[in-house]
Nucleic acid binder design. Structure first.
Length: 439
RNA sequence: UCCUCGGUAGCUCAAUCGGCAGAGCGUGUGGCUGUUAACCACAAUGCUGCAGGUUCAAAUCCUGCCCGGGGAGCCA
């Protein structure tokens, strides 16, 4: 190996390695694992885009390069120079025949070894766990979904409105609010941008907010986080039909984008893609009252007026390959701002979307919002909410009030469902959960 | 908050009736010319979560506490 050949090598990324076949390349990355059979060393190198096996042969490299292998530990950072070769035995079809290795940093013994680990240990090492192939695959799917959400609304003339995180309003009730000190006043971390997008839709017609939200619920389930991301569109002059249309449209866009952009990641996760490919519009719609009858026929002890629990959601959704809309819930279990059903005053013009495969509620809070000042004032009183913090919200019903509607989709639940992750904590880079604030 | 299971080597777990603290992986040393969580040989590694109690003797039984996992409720 001469200096000339080395200097001709080009920077390459492993995901695009086929474009460099039979060429000398430079790969900058980390050592995932190493093996040896004496005179041939095997280095598994990850560069952020993928992993490739690099072959170091004793007879082809200087002795000092060959001996670097002995020093390398798992996750050591290094710069490898070598020639790309087609190799049928490789999972990605290519290998690199090494001519030089430059050590950037020798890692201390890496806590996450190629063997099995428990959840608590992995969560304690979340900052290092992110390097694992499955975690990388899930977060790449998250990336696709985030971009697809922006894309869906942007291409339909929805204006992105960034709603505040510090707020004086309590939308969902004060028990699940994180309280912070705001210069001597009580403030709360936002649980929802809902009220603010209602204001903004009166300015722009169609808007959405997308960002982190916070709930101080002491939940310990696979679908709860104390900090999670939510997208909430709001449409002036919109009705429940628009909610159906856009929930369905958004979900279809996410499914199609993930299927087209994350084939490799879905394979790493061993996600059954047939299940995702079966998802086609229109999604079935069932009224709450009919859902109760269906559940009772299936043997559930549920009565009209009871909320749907996790078991009921699974029982209902298992009959369908696609997500399922459940609409018009009893007023008692819905939010204060939701419109009563004009055909049955016991009900609300709202909808939840249940995911298939037992994933439960994916989209919630879909509804028409009350546009009448008097009715909204009455509902605030019935819910025993502090009227003074809602004065600005009531203004929206004083100045050109119109019927409007919207919904909220939790990003992590969507990612968990599409990626097949068993718990939402793996769908966000650094989860915040009851009992866990670090790393 | 409730129910349930657990905490033993860096990690994943064993340890029979209460009787010497064990293995695999990782780490270290040596070997091997195509390995795929490579393999083979040898070696080092322990406040058995914390505090107290019972006992000749406690990882093991009892009490309290701490920290996790799974589930429920609440929700997105």
């Amino acid at each position: 190996m001469t200096t000339n050949e080395t200097s001709a090598a080009k920077d390459a990324s492993i995901s695009n390695i086929q474009a460099f076949n039979e060429q000398d390349v430079i790969i900058k990355g980390w050592l995932h694992n190493k093996r040896s059979s004496g005179n041939i060393h095997f280095l598994l190198v990850r560069d952020g885009s993928g992993t490739i096996q690099c072959i170091v042969e004793k007879k082809k490299v200087p002795e000092n390069v060959f001996k670097i292998f002995d020093e390398l530990t798992q996750e050591s950072s290094l710069i490898v120079t070598g020639k790309v070769r087609k190799e049928p035995r490789s999972p990605i079809g290519y290998e690199i025949s090494v001519s030089n290795i430059e050590i950037v940093h020798i890692a201390q013994p890496f806590p996450i070894t190629p063997k099995e680990h428990g959840t608590a240990f992995l969560m304690d090492n979340r900052h290092l766990w992110l390097r694992s192939s499955k975690q990388r695959a899930i977060l790449k799917i998250r990336h696709t979904i985030v971009m697809a959400i922006y894309d869906y609304f942007n291409s339909r003339e929805f204006v992105l409105i960034n709603t505040p995180i510090l707020t004086a309003n309590a939308v969902e009730g004060t028990t699940s609010l994180f309280e912070v000190d705001f210069f001597g006043e009580k403030a709360y971390l936002s649980q929802s941008g809902q009220l603010y997008v209602e204001a903004a839709c009166m300015a722009f017609k169609n808007v959405y907010t997308f960002g982190p939200t916070f709930r101080a619920e002491k939940s310990k389930t696979r679908k709860h986080l104390n900090e999670f991301w939510m997208v909430e569109p709001e449409m002036a002059f919109g009705t429940l039909d628009d909610v159906f249309t856009h929930e369905e449209g958004l979900i279809m866009h996410l499914v199609n984008e993930v299927l087209s952009k994350n084939q490799d990641d879905l394979a790493v996760l061993e996600r059954n893609t047939d299940v995702l490919k079966k998802i086609q519009p229109p999604f079935p719609r069932i009224a709450y009252s009919d859902a109760i009858v269906t559940l009772q026929k299936k043997g559930s002890p549920i009565k009209w007026g009871d909320d749907l629990g996790a078991d009921e959601e699974t029982l209902l959704a298992q009959d369908y390959d696609t997500p399922l809309f459940v609409h018009r819930y009893p007023k008692a279990m819905t939010s204060f701002y939701m419109v009563p059903d004009p055909e049955d005053d016991r009900l609300t013009m709202n909808v939840d979307l249940l995911g298939p495969e037992g994933y439960g509620e994916i989209i919630g809070g879909g509804s028409e919002r009350i546009s009448s000042l008097e009715l909204l004032e009455q509902r605030i009183e019935e819910h025993k909410l502090p009227r003074h913090v809602f004065e600005w919200y009531l203004d929206l019903r004083r100045y050109g009030s119109v019927p409007h509607c919207g919904f909220g989709m939790g990003l992590e639940r969507a990612v968990a469902w599409l990626s097949g992750a068993s718990h939402v904590r793996e769908t966000i880079p650094f989860p915040r959960m009851y009992y866990r604030l670090t790393p």
